[in-house]
Design a protein around this nucleic acid. Structure first.
Length: 631
RNA sequence: CGGGUUGUGGCGCAGCUUGGUCAGCGCGCUCGCUUCGGGAGCGAGAGGCCGCCGGUUCGAAUCCGGCCAACCCGACCA
């Protein structure tokens, strides 16, 4: 009977992590499926260095329910399929339960990350997710991070947060445990649940309010060392994502709320991604649109005509202005286009502390202001469109020009000194031509706020043009610098006996998001199709028949397990073969073995879902074929 | 936070306009028999405070008000 404790399995000593696993009999009525031998429900993850341990998952007892119908509230493929195939369930707004199959995949992804981080000398630690306010107060992020932090109070009124990232804690740990240059360099990481009070969680695992993240931080004494470690981690990440089967692009990025420089993101190409990035048609340049630098134009004509004001009634929009300019042959020209005009957009800039300032942004009239790029340029401050023109009679909506403006003015790099523009005259119904930058007005600086378009010149090589794609941000690496070591005044003794302040690198991987990204890149109309490295099992054995097929499938599965394979076996009674085939395709283990109608002749069918290949082979050859296929 | 859509057994939905044998359908689940290689057939069942609160009414899933939640678009966001 199945009430006894299962045998305890000890992982080999070669494993970094020793897993003890005990499984219990399924709760509830078991009499019908209890075949008297459940001792093989061994349920444990393969250890980090894997191979020697097999695993047997019996679908007859697995906590799994596939859904035939599409869940109504799931939109993107990863969300739909992970729900349908029984990997996750929604448990809270922006929070998901990992079911057994999903947990296996998550753990495999984590294992790959852990192996690669360890391989470059990373050491794993783990901080609480629940942290007191003070460290975040000292780094100013209690304020800077704004509404995205989950904040809470304990019974005595003490203030806490659920950590959105752990820079402060890593820095404090290093401060606590190091005192000499001999303690450096350091690379520390953790795999932790992070919390962000996202205004709008969406797309299942892709943007949750609770998610699993691997965050790593390097501590070095010189900027040069930081560059070296950065390159090492970057290369490690490329290996990680290659192993995970994620088609990714490394793009130049902005570092956002973290602070820092030399920032790059790893984006997994996907139509459902929330990040837009550009690539160059000729060189290797790639960047998040937020980080695209606009090349300043070469100004040819130095001698421009003097500024001239024209009556331009009823032209509050660029389109109306251009039409009228051509109708009236302003300055004798009839070839005016939107690109000749200078559009001036008023925004309110809000600092994290709450102070507000009015700012006017000047961009060529044929381009919109990209609010994401604007915010990235202003970070950590944020901007909103200004619309209270009644309070500022000096700002004439639709007729604003940069000349004589009584507000801070930042211009697009295309508004270079010497360029002449058709723009507002700061008077209702009037515009001015030949408004020359550097002569008639001088911006307080430049800003990258104009939209980026496919076909724009490449800022790197200057020859190619930009193409635009969408991607899922699966990792972000950047040279953080001394923001946090300064905040906490971390100093260690250098070789010369004088204090040295370490500099930091920050390297994050969205682990749970990576699972979703893999699902986005590896599925078809029939279901998921996991890369081998992260699949919940190496092989899916399907018992298709009731003439001993279930017993034979289980026996085969045990042999495969004994050889170190992780096996998912569909031993569910009473189900037709069709149901099992469909489920197998939905669940997405690439290789399956069907123990079916030709069992009596000792033959089973081997299927490769990626290639569509099917072949019959003696049941005794299965192990050889599978191990061969797995490489 | 703005706009939109939607809340009815585990899942997917109908019913609401026109209040009254409407609490229904499909899937799933339980039991029996048959079936057994592509989400089987027949029969018999279990399962729902119709998101929540209040109002109108003789009577509310249905009409009205408020609230909550989910999803989508935007804003925001390692």
């Amino acid at each position: 009977m199945a009430t006894k404790l299962r045998q305890i399995i000890r992982a080999p000593l070669t494993c970094l992590h020793l897993y003890l696993a005990v499984s219990f009999p399924p709760v509830g009525p078991t009499s019908q499926r209890d075949d008297g031998d459940t001792s093989d429900i061994r349920w444990f993850p393969r250890c980090a260095l894997n191979t020697l341990l097999g695993m047997l998952l019996r679908m007859s007892t697995l906590l799994l329910k596939t859904l035939r119908e599409e869940p109504a509230d799931a939109e993107v493929p990863s969300h739909r399929l992970l729900l349908r195939a029984g990997y996750i369930r929604r448990a809270a707004p922006g929070g998901y339960t990992w079911l057994p199959l999903g947990k296996l995949v998550l753990d495999r992804v984590t294992a790959v990350v852990r192996e690669e981080m360890t391989a470059i000398g990373g050491q794993e630690v783990s901080f609480p997710a629940l942290l007191p306010r003070e460290p975040y107060e000292l780094s100013n992020r209690w304020t800077e991070y704004g509404d995205d932090i989950f904040r809470l109070r304990d019974r005595r009124g003490g203030e806490y947060l659920l950590a959105p990232t752990h820079e402060e804690m890593f820095t404090l740990l290093v401060q606590d445990m190091t005192s000499s240059y001999r303690d450096f360099p350091r690379l520390l990481f953790q795999v932790q649940t992070k919390y962000r009070d996202e205004a709008r969680p969406r797309a299942g695992l892709l943007r949750g309010r609770e998610f699993l993240m691997k965050d790593a931080y390097s501590f070095t004494l010189t900027d040069l060392e930081l560059v070296t470690v950065y390159a090492t981690v970057r290369a490690s990440y490329q290996r990680i994502f290659d192993r995970l089967g994620l088609d990714h692009t490394i793009v130049a990025a902005v570092s956002g709320a973290m602070g820092g420089s030399a920032s790059e993101e790893f984006l997994a190409a996907s139509e459902v991604g929330e990040d837009t990035f550009v690539g160059c048609t000729t060189c290797s340049y790639a960047a998040n649109t937020e980080a695209v630098i606009t090349p300043a134009p070469v100004v040819v004509s130095a001698a421009a005509a003097p500024l001239a004001v024209h009556d331009t009634p009823a032209t509050p929009t660029i389109a109306a202005l251009v039409d009228l300019a051509n109708e009236r042959s302003l300055d004798g020209r009839t070839d005016w286009t939107a690109a000749d005009t200078l559009k001036n957009v008023v925004v309110t800039v809000q600092q994290p502390g709450g102070e507000e300032e009015l700012l006017v942004i000047g961009v060529p009239g044929d381009r919109e202001v990209d609010l994401k790029r604007l915010d990235a340029a202003l970070a950590p401050a944020t901007a909103t469109l200004f619309d209270d023109f009644a309070s500022r009679p000096d700002l004439v909506k639709g007729y604003i020009g940069p000349q004589g403006l009584k507000a801070r003015y930042l211009a697009d790099p295309r508004v270079a000194p010497g360029t002449a523009w058709l723009t507002g005259a700061n008077e209702a119904g009037k515009h001015a031509t030949n408004v020359v930058a550097g002569r008639d007005f001088t911006p307080d600086g430049t800003i990258e706020a104009a939209e980026v378009r496919a076909g724009d010149p490449c800022p790197s090589c200057g020859e190619g043009t930009l193409t635009i794609r969408r991607g899922i941000e699966i990792a972000h690496v950047f040279q953080l610098g001394r923001k946090y070591t300064d905040a906490f005044k971390v100093d260690v003794l250098g070789v010369d006996g004088k204090p040295v302040r370490p500099t930091m690198g920050s390297y994050g991987i969205g682990v749970s998001r990576a699972v979703a990204a893999i699902a986005e890149q590896h599925h078809d109309e029939r279901g998921l199709l996991w890369p081998d490295e992260v699949a919940p099992a190496d092989v899916h054995v399907v018992a298709a028949g009731k003439d001993g097929q279930v017993e034979a499938a289980l026996e085969l599965a045990r042999q495969l397990v004994a050889a170190g394979l992780r096996v998912l076996v569909d031993d569910r009674p009473q189900l037709s073969a069709g149901v099992k085939f469909t489920d197998a395709e939905l669940i997405g283990v690439a290789r399956s073995v069907v123990v079916g109608r030709r069992l009596a002749e000792g033959l089973v069918e081997f299927r490769d879902r990626r290639t569509g290949e099917r072949s019959e082979l003696p049941i005794t050859d299965v192990l050889r074929v599978i191990t061969g296929a797995l490489g």
